[in-house]
Amino acid sequence: MSLSPLQLCLLFSSALFCVGLFGALARSNTILVLLGIELMLNAANLNFIAFWRFGGAHAPASGVLFAIFSIAVAAAEAAVGLALVIAIYRHQKNIRLQDASRLKG
């Protein structure tokens, strides 16, 4: 096979990113859009680990540290996003994105 492992990892993360992008664009359910965004964040984390493992980095722990911080920020994003979903549901009694065009009041 002509592809190196790093390229295979990058192709994997590209596919995962595009699946997440499709979900975030196509679905009208707010929770699924948020899960699509989480998938895209996961794909970015995969890239960090892939370049750490196969890229020949100079600092030996930089990729792992970056992935850890990225996971922490993604956890905060998920909590805030799902709280927003619950707030929108309290306001308009459904979570369709088309109906959530007005966030005030």
Binding site: S4, L6, Q7, C18, L21, F22, L25, A26, G55, P60
Partner: peptide, 30 residues
């Protein structure tokens, strides 16, 4: 529209990954 957009992004990413000279397999495992 979502299929077209994500497909275009996937095409660009795949082309970039395959055409970029990346380090090979003889990398010391960190």
């Amino acid at each position: 529209a979502a299929v077209v957009t994500s497909g275009a992004v996937l095409g660009v990413l795949l082309g970039a990954v395959i055409s970029t000279p990346l380090p090979g397999t003889n990398i010391t495992v960190p």
